[in-house]
Write a protein that binds this DNA or RNA. Structure first.
Lengths: 341, 341
DNA sequence: GTCCGATCCGATATCGTTACAGGACTCGAC
DNA sequence: GTCGAGTCCTGTAACGATATCGGATCGGAC
């Protein structure tokens, strides 16, 4: 029953026109208080709810934005999603979460979906897209890319300080005495993806410290999971490669690494130090607790949503914005050779 | 430009009526191949996208379901959300994630929102709702409650084997030699919420083993976070309460507990054993790895979505269904007094 | 040659809301 | 007494799709 009440019914019950009801619902001015009361009373009595589909059709807005992430159950993306949903809710927007599974195809699908006008805008936390896809991003609806750095992309972009953060993390390891630093990275195939940028930071820090880069210490992971982090450690140990620290491309990988080292009976940080990137919530609670680079996700999420809102409201005219978040290195037990109190 | 192409434009370009275009789009039978080709070609050429709002209005369906969880960035809910999004996507549905922050009010808000016909249905992973709210759940659109057990609720329900799982976890601790088992629980105030049910299982296992329940070993947490788990351990130790095992109401709490024990210099499992509930992905990678009760979320998520789809398709006529998932105890290092290989 | 069912296509009428434009009325100023 | 500027309300016409139903066409059976 409640589902079938329309604005017409309310109008009839309140003795006004549908338009007046609409005005009341949308808080337009120029409605006499007594009239407003009557309408509200009728709405209440009939248990009227606006039909969002009809409103969407008429206004051309949906009040919904899309968020495309590889998987919400990865800690980093989960936390990002939570912050974005909160930031959007603050502005009266709902968020549809699409899982792209880190594949280029599905990320493009999300773009196309959004073109259906299903969403007012889209936040794309890319992984698979590369500079070759730049042209495909040249779409006529609001899009914000979050995370990866796509060189000269045609859309708004909120990026991480990948190079600088990775460099600082590596420098921290060096300062703590590490010399043979493994990097667990992804495929760094196009110079601008996350893996590649963090690798650049790593190399740069090594160079700055006068440490020669050893290709044998670079491990390319297929995916950024705890599983793959643990497996990589096992592999390194099995192959007998000596190392005294590991810089992990993400905290999730680092958690797997901590586990892998424990399984191998290697003590952290005494024998091997570990640092990650992202500072996810779990990192504070691992044993030992995990040092990490904190790129300030909260600000990034807030910025992404606010950029998107600007596009939605002001259209595609304005010039493209690029925001790179700040960062700081969070030093915890995993890189602290002085035993904690 | 792409945004303004309507089905009319396509019809004109293809030399057919809008209805025929609609038939093609919706894969209706009885459209000649040559006609279909022409229409598809026109769609492609004009870069036409259906206007979802218009379709929703006309059909009364949105192809979107709501998922209300406390927070997507808690591992358990993140993993649940991921599974539900996947299960829904398989059926051609999108998912809007609402964060209720574990408050009763926001959970009810989600229910009301859904009444806007914004979603075709709602999956509510409750925390704050209690039996007192049973009547409020008597709504006329598809709802599935996921997780908590609301006695005799008027809606479909996918529940966990809370009592049985908790009992099995506790029994496992006892079998491993524990006698003074702390339970870290939430407020067990209404006999049917998660905390209360898991507490029942705990007490039952104690009773079965002939161990007297010691109220001093029951700790009520305000929230189920790693933070609160760690704090609880610190508090117990500070108060000098002796214990040889901890059963945590969730794995997230347990991870905090592992961390807290490490900070206190207490060895796991030698001095204190720990077991959680949920078997989140992280539990396999903690140090030591965490034993847990696995309620098979994948099946739960799948079941929740499938129940919801049934409601959406078949209406509210059918009788209410209640599904309780199976479970098994996953034994890992944190409860294994025999050192792992 | 007729008839019938299957196949193919389209005219019309909404779905429930809001944009737009304008009508009626009030009130104060001159 | 007239005018203008609010204030308050409403009639009409979409927004872009699909449900419904009926009309046309075609091929085969008799």
């Amino acid at each position: 029953m409640a589902g079938k009440v329309t604005i017409q019914d309310v109008a009839r019950a309140a003795g006004v026109s549908p338009m007046t009801v609409s005005h009341v619902i949308n808080a337009h001015p120029h409605v006499k208080d007594s009239t407003r009361e009557r309408v509200l009373h009728a709405i209440d009595k009939l248990d009227y709810r606006v039909n969002v589909a009809a409103r969407n059709l008429r206004t051309g807005r949906t009040g919904t934005i899309g968020l495309a992430v590889p998987e919400v159950d990865r800690p980093y993306f989960g936390q990002l999603a939570a912050e974005i949903i909160t930031a959007a809710a603050r502005r009266g927007f709902r968020v549809v979460v699409e899982q792209t599974g880190a594949s280029r195809e599905t990320e493009l699908d999300a773009l196309v979906l959004s073109r259906n006008r299903m969403y007012d805008g889209l936040i794309l936390s890319t992984v698979g897209l590369g500079p070759a896809d730049t042209e495909l991003l040249r779409v006529d609806y609001p899009v914000v890319i979050l995370g990866e750095r796509i060189f000269e992309g045609p859309v708004d972009h909120v990026a991480m300080p990948n190079v600088e953060g990775a460099s600082a993390a590596t420098r921290h390891l060096i300062e703590q005495g590490a010399r043979r630093i493994v990097m667990l990275d992804g495929a760094a195939n196009d110079d601008v993806n996350m893996s590649s940028l963090r690798f650049q930071g790593y190399r740069q820090a090594l160079a700055d410290a006068g440490i020669a880069f050893d290709g044998g210490l670079l491990v390319e992971l297929d995916e950024f999971t705890m599983q793959s982090g643990a497996a990589a450690v096992h592999d390194l140990v099995t192959r007998g490669i000596p190392f005294d620290a590991i810089f992990c491309v993400t905290d999730t990988v680092a958690i797997g690494v901590l586990r892998g080292l424990a399984s191998e009976g290697i003590r952290v940080p005494d024998e091997v130090m570990v640092i990650g990137f992202d500072n996810i919530r779990e990192s504070e609670f691992t044993v030992p607790s995990l040092s990490s680079v904190d790129p300030d996700h909260t600000t990034m999420a807030e910025k992404a949503v606010s950029l998107l809102m600007n596009r939605i409201e002001r259209g595609s005219g304005a010039s493209r914005e690029e925001y790179v978040s700040g960062f700081h290195v969070v030093k915890r037990e995993s890189t602290s050779r002085i035993a904690p109190a």
